[in-house]
Design a protein around this nucleic acid. Sequence first.
DNA 1: TGCGCCGCAACGTTGCTGCAATCCTCGTCG
DNA 2: CGACGAGGATTGCAGCAACGTTGCGGCGCA
Lengths: 224, 224
Amino acid sequence: MRLLLVEDELEMAAALSAALGRYDMILDHAPTLDHALAALANHVHDGIILDRQLPDGDGLSLIPRVRALKSGIPVIVLTARGAVDERVRGLDMGADDYLAKPFAVEELLARIRALMRRSPDIAPMTARIGKLVFDFDGRQAQVNGQLLDLPRRELLVLETLARRQGRTVQRSTLEESVYGYDDEIQSNSLDAHVSRLRRKLADTGAGVEIHSIRGVGYLLRPSP
Amino acid sequence: MRLLLVEDELEMAAALSAALGRYDMILDHAPTLDHALAALANHVHDGIILDRQLPDGDGLSLIPRVRALKSGIPVIVLTARGAVDERVRGLDMGADDYLAKPFAVEELLARIRALMRRSPDIAPMTARIGKLVFDFDGRQAQVNGQLLDLPRRELLVLETLARRQGRTVQRSTLEESVYGYDDEIQSNSLDAHVSRLRRKLADTGAGVEIHSIRGVGYLLRPSP
DNA sequence: TGCGCCGCAACGTTGCTGCAATCCTCGTCG
DNA sequence: CGACGAGGATTGCAGCAACGTTGCGGCGCA
């Protein structure tokens, strides 16, 4: 799961990024409307968290453009506590939900999950390849009903591959999905994650394999 | 994938060409609006990267002409960082996306991919010839649902031929698609790749053949 | 403070790829 | 009609870049 936070307060962004990271989510941060539009053009985000007060305008003005770009993506608007009319206006503008600041991270998470759940048209809930079942909602992988306990990076790799099951995922795409924009990676860490993930998939008899295509990328497929 | 860069700075063009080449993309360079229009007449490009400041006018003026020529082709506009109104105007003029200079190549690539993904009318997602199915999104070929495991160069050859299925692909065009402009090739490597690809297509019973036309090029067609 | 994830680097391995040598095919011209 | 030349096809080979694997140290989290 990859979210875009549109928010000019750096402190808040850092805190939220850390918090969501613990739940295996990637948070990209856009400090201005401009940055937000640029980031959204990539169509890689599954949801948007939107502050209203931004250096270059009202956050709400982003919503119509978001809808034009990617219609069904969930948008959560952050408002000041008690400003009822703000909330109403947000919903009128097409936001899916709002949240009063300050808020508990748990609450934000719950709302994100709820919104994900009711937009099944975007992406199917689960993917099945071999004996592996990947649950995009619960963000977990199962083999024969047995939970596959994966660390964050490996889970992101598997999730990305499962999303495009059967089709090739370019190496650069995978790097973006696993590390986000900001994080520069300067080693073969990705290969390392793939390697460890492969071992786990093999050990649990998941019936899937990560096939590599030299110079192109990887793909997830049933093992022969 | 073949893109047209409309940009008068040679340095920038060279750098970008080299960078995109590494990601299996071909970049043609047009230093002026005039050159751009001439290049577009060939209808071989899958996307346009457009600078605004050009010797013979504003890059944006190209957009309506592009739309008239080839309606759905993605256009990315390059703007100076921080010039918000420029960007807005670009989007109003019908650009599909914009990018602030200087930018990371990865960022550009991500946008290109995203735009490709949502313009299915331009480039059909899949091509079918004989028993061969080529998936341009997943960048892979299948025969009877079976993945054809091809290395980078061979994949590029097949991808290019499949994209122009039935029509002849000039030898020089194919070389450009496979190697790009920078990479000089001094042997018959291309023939070698074609040869190996032919063997694989025959072995898997793909029902297609790469027919060669002496002195002109190749074409992909159902085998008799 | 212990545990585990993660980035990193070192090193082994694979197989793609450019190259060239050789053979083949087709068209042309005497 | 036969020889010749140019362009194409095939294949072996060696270099090297991409990929795989593993161990280590640091850092964050419980």
